[in-house]
């Protein structure tokens, strides 16, 4: 992948984000695009872990929950500034990830999946049961966020905030993957033994990427909480974790733009299908199944191989 192409695709994304407000008819469509952007950033972080480093996490929603509830609880109960609360949430999520990473990443395959799954569920249970602080299963309202007297309010302001964040995340992820760090991750994915032989400290890289994706997830959890203005324990739910993994897989593992397409698709589909009156889950499921049967590598890698001129190998 050459440098020119890299800038080309980023500029395309920037152009789409700039032009989108011209065609979005009302706040509801802004809302969908904002949710797409939030999901895309989380999926991107998760893709670094799953697609590039080859480590599964079925408990990622737990980290989102930590960020969301830090932003909900600290300003409401302790009077913290929302930005400080957001940072604290990210710090807590990263620390938990760092502490858990070492024992967890001794495991492989389904055992690793089980361990991350357990971690996510425990976080969700704590949130659900500490009702005095979290409001229990009914959730709690979140104070708005602002900086130096300006409050981010309304879909249009949030749109620009998230468009900028999305663009930055993609730029950062692209650079990361083309750096020595990214190459080490891919080596790790290919073969841990080979990577170790080549001098890659596999434990350190696994921990680093897990912490990084937990950090991203927590930040976006905080953003979600402030944007929606209300959090419930569902945000840390096992099903939310699955939804995120599905975005990564459908879009394409180890594909930066796959995360974006996966997030866009899985956020838009439930809204588009709501006209099917009770059959939406069936249609939704069959679309996902069709994708997985005919495009097992995910949408973006399959289409890139089909239409790409850059000589990638055909599966």
């Amino acid at each position: 992948m050459s440098g020119v192409r890299r800038h080309y695709s980023l500029m395309l994304l920037a152009a789409v984000l700039l032009l989108l407000p011209l065609v979005l008819p009302n706040n509801f469509y802004y809302d969908i695009v904002i949710r797409m952007a939030i999901n895309a950033i989380i999926a991107l972080g998760l893709n670094l872990l799953i697609g590039f480093a080859g480590q599964i996490s079925l408990g990622h929603a737990g980290f989102i929950g930590i960020g969301a509830y830090a932003s909900a609880i600290l300003p409401t109960h302790f009077g913290w500034h929302p930005l400080l609360a957001m940072a604290a949430g990210a710090a807590i999520a990263s620390s938990i990830a760092a502490i858990l990473a070492r024992p967890i990443f001794r495991l492989k395959g389904q055992y690793l999946a089980m361990a991350t799954l357990g971690m996510g569920i425990i976080i969700a249970i704590v949130i659900k049961n500490e009702a005095a602080y979290t409001g229990g299963p009914d959730g709690m309202p979140v104070a708005p966020i602002g900086l130096m007297g300006f409050e981010i309010a309304g879909e249009k302001q949030w749109y620009w905030v998230l468009a900028a964040t999305l663009l930055f995340s993609f730029w950062a992820a692209k650079n990361l993957i083309d750096s020595p760090f990214g190459r080490a991750l891919r080596a790790l994915h290919g073969s841990e033994v080979a990577a170790q032989v080549m001098g890659v400290d596999i434990v350190r890289y696994k921990v680093a990427i897990f912490v990084l994706s937990a950090f991203f997830a927590s930040l976006m959890g905080s953003v979600t909480a402030h944007y929606i203005g209300f959090v419930t324990p569902n945000i840390a739910d096992f099903f939310h974790s699955i939804e995120l993994v599905t975005m990564v897989v459908i879009g394409g593992m180890a594909s930066i733009y796959g995360s974006l397409i996966g997030a866009v698709l899985l956020t838009a589909l439930p809204q588009a299908l709501s006209t099917f009156e009770g059959w939406e889950t069936v249609v939704f499921g069959s679309i996902l199944m069709t994708c997985m049967i005919f495009m097992p590598k995910g949408l973006v890698p399959t289409l890139a191989a089909r239409f790409g001129r850059n000589g990638r190998e055909d599966p």
């Binding site: 009302n26 509801f28 809302d31 959730g139 979600t224 209300f230 809204q271």
Partner: peptide, 13 residues
């Protein structure tokens, strides 16, 4: 509840 929030926006806007 988070989905309810999104659909309420759709109903309103």
């Amino acid at each position: 509840a988070a989905k309810a929030n999104g659909f309420a926006k759709r109903l309103i806007d």
